[in-house]
Amino acid sequence: MNRLLFLALTILLTLAFFGCSDDKEIKSADVVAKATQVIPVKLDTKKRLVYIVTDKSIPFWDIMGRGIKNSADALGYELAIYDAQNSVKSELELSVKAIKEGVSGIIISPSTSSTCATVLKLAKTASIPVVISDIGTDNGEYVSYISSNNREGGYEIGKVLAKKLHELGWSSGRVGIVAIPQKRLNGQERTAGFLHAMDDSGIKGADIKQLVTWSQEETYSFVKEMIEGYADLRAIWLQTSNAYKGALQALEESGRKDEILLIAFDAEPEFLELIPKKVLAGSAMQQPYLMGQEALKAMDAYLSGKEVQKNIQLPILSISTENIDEKLSVIRRNVLGL
């Protein structure tokens, strides 16, 4: 009896499986899914992004990272920051790592535009979108390139310096430049804008010395050489912010501290004091925090299927003794990320 009942039940089940309509199939599949929990439920809906930074120890990049993080949090992205620690190898390894992780997008502040091209090439093979935040790339495909308007920034700070030299009656003196490598596009733009302002004001130039190690020592020796080399040297423009101490030391030692103006590029928190004290005549300040925010916004726009501007240039703040108080809050947030 039991055998007959089992047989009848089996036939019935078989008919139910193979002889019924599609609706019945879905239903049975639902049954199975529900029964086995096979269908994964995406619990975390945040898209994962990676910010690869060349050297997080540099405040500029750190501030930028914070700007990115700020926007990621605001827009609901999971962000991982990979610090290459000023190693190309590491930069590439981290890029490969991010690619292999299958992230939704990469924001990169590359060590060089050349390395960036390699990263773009690798990312392209995995169809991962890349936003470049500063430095730029030699080639390759990317979503957007966020940069500062270095030419304009250079020009504006040049005007500030020229004004000061006029006020001091030092217009006949020379101006020396400790420049970031001129191979870099941002360096070229920066120098060109500044020299333009010098030309406009009729101020003669001294040497342009390019940084290699970016160290305080290097800046010190460059500034010293120029002070010794040019008796009529009236100003030095540092195209960086971090090595200002080397420059100050050289000026101090030369005994011509009061005869030579020092202006900088970018900012260190100390600048908020040094400028009002006129130790520094001023600085052209990029806005890394803002750049970071903009970079992530661009990535978000891309991932949301919106149109993205290929090149986004952000203004550089031309800060001098005269306007530092006025711009302080902007400087603190967008420049220093405080």
């Binding site: 190309v88 590439l92 050349s114 390395t115 091209a117 390699t118 090439k121 030699d138 080639n139």
Partner: peptide
């Protein structure tokens, strides 16, 4: 040696 792929590509 310096992992400058793009450079040697250039």
């Amino acid at each position: 040696k310096s992992y400058s792929i793009n450079e040697y590509d250039k």
